[in-house]
Simulated scan of single mutants.
Amino acid sequence: MREVIFDTETTGLDPRTGDRMVEIGCIEMVDRVETGRTFHAYFNPERDMPIEAERVHGLSAEFLATKPRFAELADELLAFLGDSLLVAHNAGFDFGFLNAELERIGRAPIAAERMVDTVALARKKHPGAKNSLDALCTRYGIDRSHRVKHGALLDAELLAQVYVELTGGRQIGLGLAERETAAALPATAITATGTAPAERPVRPPRPHAPSAAELERHSAFVAGIENAIWTR
């Protein structure tokens, strides 16, 4: 199953009041394993950058002024997204901005049915706990020391690791690998660990019957037992 983990950076909180998407980062996963394929782009928002937003992601209006407009990269982005499920943290926010940009250029919005919200998954799995991306990275031991400021591709990379933990953890792949190893071996050669046993030399059978002297000593011992239950 193909899924795309993505994150956005914006000029503010609400596309309905003129805020724009300025960065998107996407990570491709197949069967919850990263394939190495990514999509990353900065966009010229054609407006100013509020200082509050710049403090979060570090993207200035001067830097973004030289970047392409969303319309110039929309086809490339949509081709990467395909018809896959789209996973985001607080996905309603990112979907809102992505669909606002698509609407702005006359393109169809992405259906809400394709949205997977990791905040909702985290609240279900860890009710009452903090479920920010930073908190989840801490909970699952994911290194985020290189995350000085928010960045769409960096946050998508961290979220991909969090998503694996929220949906079963890394042991999913380990179990599958063991089953595949076992399937590749003959049924008679499989041990409890799923691997073929080492070759062992064939030894001739050893006799285990008691000798005549042993039988005689046993009879003498039994005869000396007083009040034996088998004589009652």
Score class of each variant (00 low, 15 high):
residue 1 M to N: 12
residue 1 M to P: 08
residue 1 M to L: 12
residue 2 R to F: 11
residue 2 R to C: 10
residue 5 I to C: 01
residue 7 D to S: 10
residue 10 T to S: 02
residue 10 T to K: 02
residue 11 T to Q: 00
residue 11 T to R: 00
residue 12 G to R: 02
residue 14 D to L: 04
residue 15 P to T: 00
residue 17 T to L: 09
residue 18 G to E: 02
residue 19 D to N: 07
residue 20 R to Y: 01
residue 25 G to T: 02
residue 26 C to E: 01
residue 26 C to N: 03
residue 27 I to T: 01
residue 28 E to N: 04
residue 30 V to W: 06
residue 31 D to I: 06
residue 31 D to L: 04
residue 32 R to P: 00
residue 33 V to H: 10
residue 37 R to G: 07
residue 37 R to Y: 11
residue 37 R to L: 11
residue 38 T to N: 13
residue 40 H to K: 13
residue 42 Y to N: 08
residue 42 Y to L: 14
residue 43 F to D: 02
residue 44 N to E: 09
residue 44 N to H: 14
residue 44 N to T: 06
residue 45 P to C: 09
residue 46 E to L: 11
residue 49 M to H: 06
residue 52 E to A: 13
residue 54 E to G: 07
residue 56 V to T: 15
residue 58 G to F: 14
residue 59 L to T: 05
residue 59 L to Q: 02
residue 60 S to G: 13
residue 61 A to R: 13
residue 61 A to G: 12
residue 61 A to F: 04
residue 62 E to K: 12
residue 64 L to M: 08
residue 64 L to N: 03
residue 65 A to Y: 07
residue 65 A to S: 15
residue 65 A to L: 07
residue 66 T to N: 11
residue 73 L to I: 03
residue 74 A to T: 01
residue 79 A to F: 08
residue 81 L to H: 01
residue 82 G to M: 05
residue 82 G to Q: 11
residue 85 L to Q: 04
residue 87 V to T: 02
residue 88 A to Y: 00
residue 90 N to W: 03
residue 90 N to K: 07
residue 90 N to S: 11
residue 91 A to F: 02
residue 93 F to C: 07
residue 95 F to G: 00
residue 98 L to P: 00
residue 99 N to C: 09
residue 101 E to V: 01
residue 102 L to D: 03
residue 108 A to R: 15
residue 109 P to F: 07
residue 110 I to W: 05
residue 110 I to A: 08
residue 112 A to K: 15
residue 113 E to H: 15
residue 113 E to L: 12
residue 114 R to Q: 09
residue 114 R to W: 09
residue 118 T to E: 03
residue 122 A to K: 02
residue 122 A to R: 02
residue 123 R to T: 03
residue 124 K to M: 08
residue 124 K to V: 03
residue 125 K to F: 04
residue 128 G to R: 07
residue 131 N to S: 04
residue 132 S to G: 13
residue 140 Y to L: 05
residue 141 G to Q: 08
residue 143 D to S: 06
residue 143 D to K: 04
residue 143 D to R: 03
residue 146 H to F: 13
residue 150 H to A: 11
residue 151 G to D: 15
residue 157 E to A: 13
residue 157 E to S: 15
residue 159 L to Y: 06
residue 165 E to V: 15
residue 171 Q to N: 13
residue 172 I to Y: 07
residue 176 L to E: 14
residue 177 A to W: 07
residue 178 E to V: 13
residue 185 L to H: 08
residue 186 P to I: 09
residue 186 P to E: 14
residue 187 A to E: 10
residue 188 T to G: 14
residue 189 A to G: 14
residue 189 A to W: 12
residue 190 I to L: 14
residue 190 I to V: 13
residue 192 A to M: 12
residue 194 G to E: 12
residue 195 T to Q: 15
residue 197 P to M: 11
residue 200 R to A: 14
residue 202 V to N: 05
residue 203 R to H: 12
residue 203 R to W: 10
residue 204 P to F: 09
residue 205 P to C: 08
residue 206 R to D: 03
residue 206 R to C: 09
residue 209 A to C: 10
residue 209 A to S: 13
residue 210 P to N: 09
residue 211 S to Y: 05
residue 212 A to S: 10
residue 215 L to M: 11
residue 215 L to E: 08
residue 220 A to N: 05
residue 220 A to I: 10
residue 220 A to E: 10
residue 221 F to K: 12
residue 222 V to T: 08
residue 224 G to A: 14
residue 227 N to M: 06
residue 229 I to H: 04
residue 229 I to A: 10
residue 230 W to R: 12
residue 230 W to D: 11
residue 230 W to P: 00
residue 231 T to Y: 09
